[in-house]
Amino acid sequence: MVEVPLPKDKWSGKVNAVNLGAEPSTGGTRSAIVTVGGENAMPFLGYEGLAPNRVRIAGEVTDMPGEVPEQVRALFGEATSDVAEWAKVWVENFKADLICLRLASTNPEESNVSPQDAALTVLKVLKAVSVPIIVYGCGQEEKDAKTMEAVSNAAPKERLLLGQAEEGVYKSIAAAGMANNHAIVAFSNLDINLAKQITILLTDFGVRKESIVMDPLMAPLGMGLEYSYSVNERIRLAALAGDGMLQLPMLCDCTGAWKCREATDDVADWGDRNERGKWWEATTALAAILSGADILIMRHPGAAAEAKRAIEGLRGGA
């Protein structure tokens, strides 16, 4: 019999484990803490190392549901008019591990909801579900700074994951996170050096590495997925090779898939639109998990289910 050698890569580095959410024992109200990261091998190579924590799926809800294509909203029925109900459907019907709440209504150029009211929305969602929560603002830096401060203070013991710190605009969110021991998202624009840079800035500012999750920008299928796939792989390889500033769990937001016309348009030769849209996001998610994702933000529950099935299958489940 031919003896085939087993070519294992030996890595010295390991991705940090980050805890999200807090249980009643520490003053929080989550039913369980969710731990992400902790792996010491390339994704799903079980013969080579350990991935103690499964990739987690965050179901997206937003207080401006109009930004979600109608074909996805329809799957949640009435629930999308209320983020708390929407979050419940994600957790109860679709078994989401986390909720990603976007406070899009805070946008000063649109409905301009106040930071205080936005914080109340967070509390409502915390009350409706017992999984940990990721919170994003509207993307307008000055407003987000205020919103995140209010959110941080309104739920001081819940260990939220707050989005997002970027080069140039990280101090206020870092401060909001540090004030109440929340975790924060370190965003960078499709570049390994920028990903490292933002971690350096945050840790220099005083944020503990155990409180940082990185988002290197997951470009969706057909819109630069190949850049993200390779940037993610390079980040993870560098982390395993020992680069401490890249040893962070990776968050990949797959909802950008819905910006692609292939996900939403009715074109005769392209087949069923709903199924195609679902797979557009699911394919983005599969590329994310194979290149290093630890958390996926998902919009379509069917796509989330496919991603979950892939994660289970890749971990050796049926």
Binding site: L221, E262, D269, W270, G271, D272, R273, E275, R276, W279, W280, A282, T283
Partner: peptide, 8 residues
């Protein structure tokens, strides 16, 4: 099917 072939 085409709806699966396109993303693939």
């Amino acid at each position: 099917k085409p709806e699966h072939a396109l993303p693939l």
